[in-house]
Write a protein that binds this DNA or RNA. Structure first.
Lengths: 220, 220
DNA sequence: CAATTTTGATAGTAATACTATTATTTTTGT
DNA sequence: ACAAAAATAATAGTATTACTATCAAAATTG
């Protein structure tokens, strides 16, 4: 069974999943983006890695900024799918919320059935690079083009749960987007600026912290 | 009275506060960084704005990345100073913490005595651009050079307060760095992706949210 | 006011982020 | 199986960026 994850079609010129070379661009592109980081990543280097040419990659993606947006969008698509799985057929709302928080702030389990092989790599890229994709002067245009629908859908779905559990809580969207962003930020800190975080515990402190916030704030 | 804010000397080649043209680089640089954003900002454009040359600016800053780090470091220096003011001579620890949260997550009051004129502009730059300064392959070297000491000092100071108030709370640093980062992120969302946040209320929702988190999590 | 430092003016370079052109290869419909 | 269409490779070229270098003029300083 192969799950198809939706990525906004405004992000590519030609669907990279529609050809062998397109898939190679994605596979090797993810790897190279991780290895070099967004700044040093170029289509020229990627072309060399896949034994193709710059011009070919430019036929799939307008520029490296859009390529990064594609990867991030893909990641949010995967999470959206996992969120669905984790809440389907769960009758208790609080359990649904708890499962959602685990999906959004925990680490993916690669041994799990139906897990998506690229998820961990994409997550690393989101942690390292997503700020550069978001914080540009083009953000408003891109938002108009629906680039952030996957992300907004996630925040909306989970904050609806919050509203059902505690209709009086005044900041449901802020709470959820905070927990999502914080999870990625703290994972970055734990590698590079460990004094800004608490990572000592044996379990996943980021996920535990997120559950704790939800419990205390919503008084569960 | 003029307060001098400490900025790590590894961030400049020649102290920009030591000359008229250096101060012009800072003043106009802040403005241009806001207007153009980090990507489109260049030393050439800045040189034109101050009627000087690229070469002169390069004598003060190695590159625009370091210039941005300088501005961010300056901002954390200002906050560190304001944090001191807001907690000095406050006997109650909980009140100290509350004041600290206001400084870290609220908006500066430009009408206040001793307020620093550049703070609001620097804050905007931190909100828009600080991710680009932090999330690079150089972060570990820069951390070694003490670039993040101002920031780490803030997190350390306030999380010490948390520890005194609730010694059993397991994630004090994570809590504080989360609130700081979240405040900036939510202010970005409220302008560009309002559906990810809650900004409807008349008061400053970001600051109120932060106080609420602290109260609930530490059961004050 | 001579010596030193700083700045201005100008030039130059390697890399980046593309666009354009044309030949070759691959895919596709019949 | 094969002609037509589409995709890719190979190559070249351009504007901009992010610097470095040089040297004369201006400003500062002891």
């Amino acid at each position: 069974m192969n799950i198809s994850i939706q990525v906004s079609s405004t992000l590519y010129l030609k669907d990279p999943t529609s050809s062998e070379i397109g898939l190679k661009i994605l596979r090797e592109g993810i790897q190279l983006m991780q290895d070099l980081g967004f700044e040093a990543f170029t289509f020229k280097k990627l072309a060399q890695n896949i034994q193709s040419t710059e011009a070919t990659i430019y036929r799939y993606f307008e520029n490296k900024h859009n390529f990064l947006l594609y990867l991030i969008n893909w990641y949010w698509g995967i999470l959206s799918y996992r969120l669905m799985l984790a809440t389907a057929n769960v009758p208790d709302l609080k359990q649904q919320l708890s499962n959602s928080i685990s999906v959004l702030t925990g680490l993916p389990d690669p041994s799990q059935l139906g897990s998506i092989e690229e998820e961990m790599q994409l997550k690393q890229i989101v942690i390292q690079e997503s700020g550069k994709a978001l914080h540009t002067k083009m953000v408003d245009d891109e938002n108009q083009n629906g680039i952030y629908l996957n992300y907004k859908h996630i925040v909306s779905t989970v904050s609806e749960l919050v509203k059902k559990i505690d209709p009086s809580f005044p900041y449901p969207e802020m709470l959820i987007s905070n927990l999502i962003e914080n999870a990625n930020q703290q994972r970055f800190f734990s590698v590079h600026l460990p004094r800004l975080t608490n990572t000592s515990s044996a379990d996943d402190a980021v996920e535990s912290f997120s559950h704790l916030i939800i419990q205390k704030v919503l008084q569960l």
